[in-house]
Design a protein around this nucleic acid. Structure first.
Lengths: 105, 105
DNA sequence: TTACAATATCGTATATTTACGATGAAGGAT
DNA sequence: ATCCTTCATCGTAAATATACGATATTGTAA
């Protein structure tokens, strides 16, 4: 049956898994890199750099926004997206913590 | 339509996304921690520490094995799983690389 | 050989993800 | 006011993921 049992784990593991889920598509990794490389970060600029439709890119942006990895600021009819460095830094910290646990390095 | 366009990205982004996908469930994060904390790492030992059936755990192990994060060594009727540190280190390196690109830290 | 134990795989049901085109909403320009 | 641009959301279809019980497989023990 497909009721998820994800809630039966620790908050920490669930949060990290959720961040990993947001990174689990090359388009979303690419979007994060695009947002870094460009000063302007309108949706249109992202769409034209990806082999995906506008609506699909919008969905990917929504997923990144859901976990807080990016923020969207409304600017007239446009929306300017940017990296949320606070969440990103937390993700890096938690990811490092995981690696330090499962590695011995 | 649901044909994936994941192949239209760079190998690097695809690989990292695939690793992220393998980490995108708290059970699989938990499994990696369990494999680290225990010397013995039979499937049964893992199953008894998770709120999931044996067959479901087996599926999660398969996913971790698919991306090379764990190895399974057959030991009689048992299978002993362990972390693959080579893949794990590569994952850490690539993840750090991504963070260094999208962070400025 | 037969039985048991450990694990993987099959079959199946439901949920979620990924993708698209079409439509809607909101702001700017004429 | 009307049109255009920009983006989100809706509707939809197919793929993938998650979960379970049942069954198959493989090795050990009796």
């Amino acid at each position: 049956m497909a009721f998820s049992k994800k809630e039966e784990f620790t908050k920490e593991d669930m949060w990290l898994a959720d961040i990993a889920k947001a990174l689990a598509h090359p388009a979303r990794i690419r979007i994060l890199k695009i947002l870094t490389s460009m000063k302007a970060c309108m949706v249109g600029n992202i769409v034209e750099q990806l082999p995906l439709s506008q609506s699909t890119v919008s969905q990917h942006l929504k997923e990144l926004k859901r976990v807080g990895l990016i923020d969207g600021e409304i600017d007239g009819p446009k929306v300017c997206y940017c990296i949320n460095h606070k969440t990103l830094n937390k993700a890096k910290k938690e990811m490092d913590k995981l690696y330090s646990i499962i590695c011995n390095c």
